[in-house]
Amino acid sequence: MKPSNKNVRCPTCDKPFVPDPQSAVMPFCSERCKLADLHRWMKEDIGIPHGSSEPEDQEDEAPSPPMSPREWRFD
């Protein structure tokens, strides 16, 4: 397949660039943009939507466990 000379836009920085199908950073323009995108995923700033868009009843869910060991209770 012949590479395209058409510019595409980087999903991170929105900069136009000529894609290289052999590039390890595709669909990003650089390693920096690739890592910036990974960082956003790991911080959960972005993600894949799942489930219904309606909020669920919070009463049916069990309370979340305490985050700090100081809050733990051993009854």
Score class of each variant (00 low, 15 high):
Cys29Trp: 00
Leu35Val: 14
Asp75Gly: 15
Met67Cys: 11
Glu59Cys: 10
Ala24Ser: 12
Ser64Ile: 04
Pro27Asn: 00
Trp41Leu: 12
Ser30His: 03
Cys13Gly: 00
Pro3Thr: 13
Gln58Asn: 04
Pro63Cys: 06
Ser68Ile: 11
Pro21Asp: 12
Ser4Met: 07
Glu54Lys: 07
Ser53Asp: 09
Gln58Cys: 01
Asp14Ala: 15
Glu31Thr: 14
Lys34Ile: 03
Ala36Leu: 15
Cys29Phe: 00
Val25Gly: 02
Glu61Ile: 01
Glu56Gly: 00
Asp14Cys: 15
Phe17Leu: 10
Ser30Met: 08
Asp20Met: 02
Ala36Val: 15
Met26Lys: 14
Phe74Arg: 08
Ser53Arg: 07
Ala36Gln: 12
Ser4Gln: 08
Asp20Asn: 09
Glu54His: 04
Arg70Ile: 10
Lys15Phe: 05
Ile48Tyr: 12
Asp20His: 02
Asp37Gln: 13
Trp72His: 13
Asp20Arg: 05
Pro66Arg: 03
Ala36Ile: 13
Pro69Trp: 05
Cys10Phe: 06
Gln58Trp: 00
Ala24His: 02
Pro69Asp: 02
Pro27Trp: 05
Cys33Tyr: 03
Arg70Leu: 11
Met42Phe: 06
Ala24Asp: 12
Arg9Tyr: 15
Glu71Leu: 04
Pro16Thr: 03
Arg32Tyr: 07
Arg40Tyr: 05
Pro49Phe: 10
Cys13Ala: 01
Trp72Thr: 13
Ile46Ser: 06
His50Ala: 14
Ser30Ile: 08
Gln22Cys: 04
Ser68Asp: 15
Ser52Val: 03
Ser23Thr: 14
Glu54Met: 06
Val8Cys: 05
Arg70Val: 13
Pro66Cys: 07
Asn7Lys: 15
Thr12Gly: 06
Phe28Gln: 09
Phe74Met: 06
His39Phe: 10
Pro69Val: 07
Lys43Trp: 01
Lys15Ile: 08
Asp37Ser: 07
Met26Ala: 09
Lys43Val: 14
Glu56Asp: 00
Asp45Glu: 06
Glu54Arg: 04
Pro69Lys: 05
Cys10Ile: 10
Ile48Val: 15
Glu61Thr: 04
Trp72Asn: 10
Ser23Asp: 09
Asp60Pro: 00
Glu54Val: 02
Met67Asn: 11
Glu71Ser: 01
Asp57Lys: 11
Ser52Leu: 10
His50Gln: 13
Val25Thr: 15
Pro49Asn: 07
Ile46Pro: 02
Ser64Tyr: 03
Glu54Asp: 02
Lys34Thr: 06
Lys15Asp: 04
Glu71His: 01
Glu44Ile: 14
Gly47Phe: 01
Asp75Met: 05
Arg9Val: 14
Ser52Thr: 08
Pro21Ser: 08
